[in-house]
Nucleic acid binder design. Structure first.
Lengths: 139, 139
DNA sequence: CCAATTGTAATTAAAACAATTACATTTAAC
DNA sequence: GTTAAATGTAATTGTTTTAATTACAATTGG
């Protein structure tokens, strides 16, 4: 199972959005997402760095949304918490006697970069608010 | 480093495309891609299943391209060798007392699926032939 | 027959990752 | 000011993935 961080982060953001204004602790969030409070807190730190949430330390501390759900795209969440590229180019040295295999690495990097952009563009089109509406729709 | 299989596979396909018609053994391909012959052979099996290459067993065996590079998109290579989705939804049971957290999993699956489609659509637009031209361009 | 190669299983080694434990720090409430 | 509850953060553990490797039966050209 891969990219769980992103899924967790979106889930956390959705829970926070459901009770905007209310400050929710990592224990409750962890129960909601079904993981460990420490995992949640680490994600919240990343989300905070991206200004997507605000956190309060100390007693009755916790987190709340940093801005309106309609102004938060999944791309921002992705950028905040996802450390890995979708396609990673193997960093080893290429072949010696190369038919342009020297360029291979460069060309693959371009493919990797453009793919990353395609993913981010797609996620940019989905806001947290849209997600909430879909979650509320009983399907 | 993630998704190396895809990068390896594209590299292998590029090498095969450079000498179309010629049958190249896993040893040579492995040297080109700088990995192990067995890794190459496993990838070739997947690529063969997708009809992207033909392999010949026995003495002087090896692989060659199955069709014209202009008819091979990176999407086909991706589909052939990539077992993992770009975004994987955490399979655990959701929260009991859910504000529609029951729907959360479904909604995230939709996001994961549409993202996968976005990646595949992007890769569909890049053919092996285009890649070869770019590799030959001395940059 | 023989040498070279694929096809494939099994094993090993390394890397990535989630989960957990532990604890110092912060802060509200009393 | 003390206390209880929470965050922030480091360190550790255990599991899962993954690439690499070894080994060998099956295939095939010469």
């Amino acid at each position: 199972m891969v990219n769980q961080q992103f899924t967790f982060a979106v889930h956390i953001m959705a829970v926070l959005a459901f009770s905007s204004d209310e400050v929710i602790g990592s224990r409750r969030l962890a129960a909601s997402v079904n993981t460990n409070p420490v995992v949640v807190r680490r994600l919240l730190l990343s989300l905070r760095a991206a200004r997507l949430v605000e956190t309060l330390a100390g007693r009755h501390g916790g987190a709340r949304l940093g801005k309106n759900p309609s102004r938060i795209s999944l791309m921002k969440i992705y950028d905040a918490v996802e450390p890995r590229p979708v396609i990673s180019v193997n960093g080893r040295k290429a072949l010696k006697r190369c038919h342009g295999s020297c360029n291979m690495k460069h060309v693959m990097s371009c493919v990797a970069d453009s793919t990353e952009r395609a993913v981010r563009k797609h996620l940019r089109g989905i806001t947290l608010a849209q997600l909430l509406r879909r979650i509320n729709t009983p399907r």
